[in-house]
Nucleic acid binder design. Structure first.
Lengths: 196, 196
DNA sequence: CTCCAATTAGAGTGAGTGTTCTAGAATGAT
DNA sequence: ATCATTCTAGAACACTCACTCTAATTGGAG
């Protein structure tokens, strides 16, 4: 019932990802994405009420995919080993998904999205953040026996901020994260988690 | 010989820094900066041939100031202690210069400057990068006894990428880098530098 | 004072942006 | 065949941006 689509949500999001990975968030214009697809601009607005909503959807898709895998590894087995494995999994995810990694690791949300989340996805964003927070607390409890603020800071530093900081330079230069990091980062993380 | 200026380079750069620190690089428009100063847009173009040149000058001013202090600390005394001190100095610089820190730590060059360095400052940029490279090599030689690629990678990771990654979340939320980092980061750096 | 150069002053230009609008093409149900 | 629905198609709109241009102002040198 109705005309068959030539460009669906997936096509549009994929084109937007390509553009952002190749030329940065500034290149993700409606006209640019439509041009890559050979689509008229109107077709993009048929799928997404605004450019913000398009970009937000893309970001959430990628972030959810990453976070799901990350938290799943973080939750398994011995906590010491789980922490190290989660770091390795993050590095490997970046290697398997170089374009998604550029989107997620290189650009903060504020560069892609001025202002607040669009209403349509505010719930998704809040749920995503909530699951991250819960996963971090669960790991902090298992690994450090505490969910105090300093303990949570350590966990976030060791498992999120340091790996991202370390991988950034490689990702920025369109390389895959160096395999040196596979041994250096877990060592640094343990130093932080087990330090005085 | 000629009319006295109401707005000099320093005023303009300061206004640009305020804007970028407060609202991100996207807010550093010529009209915006001029508006903050109460100046006409023409006056900005009297000082800077283009917006790119203005932003590039600002970035180089800040980067040179930071790097000079950083390398000076990194070059002194016992190398093990110098590495730790350089990290602490970086954190302290961010605390003393919150706006400059936002500019330098939060935004990569590519967010501020699309494309290449303007001709007028290409030499300055190259010299800055050269001094950084030289300082890193000197430290790698003293601290690890080698200037091999893996050794340089470790040094850059321990002294640059990790501290920036660690400080980012605080800086992003307009806080001063946590004092936890003063002990956690040197420990992580040593783990990386002294690791197998 | 009379020049002259430096600077302010701000309207104007053209390119690019996100978004809207109207028209038409395709498709399945009746 | 008709019709509502879904989607393409792209011109048009309002706005912002970096940048340019012309004119007016200022202050020192002669």
């Amino acid at each position: 019932m109705g005309r068959q689509p030539r460009f669906d949500e997936g096509d549009i999001l994929k084109a937007a990802l390509h553009r952002i990975a190749a030329q940065g968030p500034g290149a993700a214009t409606i006209a640019g994405i439509a041009g890559d697809l050979g689509a008229p601009t109107g077709s993009l607005y048929h799928r997404f009420r605004s450019k913000d909503l398009l970009v937000a959807t893309l970001w959430l898709d990628v972030a959810e995919e990453f976070q799901e895998g990350f938290l799943s590894v973080l939750g398994g087995g011995d906590p010491v080993e789980a922490g190290r494995s989660a770091i390795l999994w993050s590095l490997d995810w970046c290697r398997r998904n170089p374009e998604r990694a550029r989107l997620l690791m290189l650009h903060r949300r504020s560069e892609l999205l001025e202002g607040e989340w669009p209403d349509e996805v505010a719930g998704r964003a809040a749920a995503l953040a909530g699951r991250a927070e819960a996963g971090m607390r669960r790991f902090a409890k298992r690994r450090l026996g505490s969910v105090s603020k300093p303990a949570l800071r350590r966990v976030r530093l060791a498992l999120v901020d340091l790996p991202i900081g370390a991988a950034r330079s490689d990702i920025e230069e369109r390389r895959v994260p160096s395999h040196d990091l596979d041994s250096l980062l877990p060592a640094a993380a343990d130093a932080i988690l087990d330090g005085p």
